[in-house]
Amino acid sequence: MIEIEKLQKRFGRLEVLKSLDLSIPRGGIHAVLGPNGSGKTTLIKSILGMVVPDAGSIRIAGEPVVGEWKYRDNISYLPQIAHFPANLTVRELIRMIRDLRARPARDEALIRHFRIEPFLDKRLGHLSGGTRQKVNLVLAFMFEADLVLLDEPTSGLDPVSIVRLRELLAREREAGRTIIVTTHIMSLAEEIADEVIFVLEGRIHFQGTLTEIRNRTGQATLETAIAAILSEHQPSA
């Protein structure tokens, strides 16, 4: 599905991606893990074309995508921090995005799933962080795109909504979609991920199943396994 070769990006003096290579097969949930500032968001934004890489190539379904835009028709994206035009109501926002993408959408089912009917006529600027994140999720899932990029989907969500999100992710996986999700919550990754991708200092340090990462580090949980990899690479930390 996604082939990334020698991807490089620096912001000023800060080298965020250092010749990163990554290959993600079609289908399944791929959890991208890593400490703050390791390059997770930059990686996602590069795939999406919001960040322009300095060097390297990204291919989606065999096609090079750097500098292109049409391929985004088959991608859904959930940004880490939901920024919405504050003046619009939830309903107007959904209608606008539907109009812009001109693709069949299943927004109503998702609105019910995340219980946001009472907020449909409220302005986005007046919503709480959690509700805004639910709107964000509706937008990310309503188009049934083949590739779904989720940047910290759980941030701000209450436990009930996290459960609903988990149900939704399981269903999407069944539908054969490729889902890439960055998260800080190890338990979520442990529960839903088919594959774990561990990013550290702009490189991929581990890619494999949950069993593989536990076996390699000899740890019982993902959390301790990640901690073990981290201390391998940063002995002073």
Partner: peptide, 16 residues
């Protein structure tokens, strides 16, 4: 002020 709107649009299949 429109930066939110811009970000939202950038994730859609629209040329920059």
């Amino acid at each position: 002020n429109a930066s939110e709107f811009t970000e939202l649009l950038l994730a859609q299949p629209i040329r920059r």
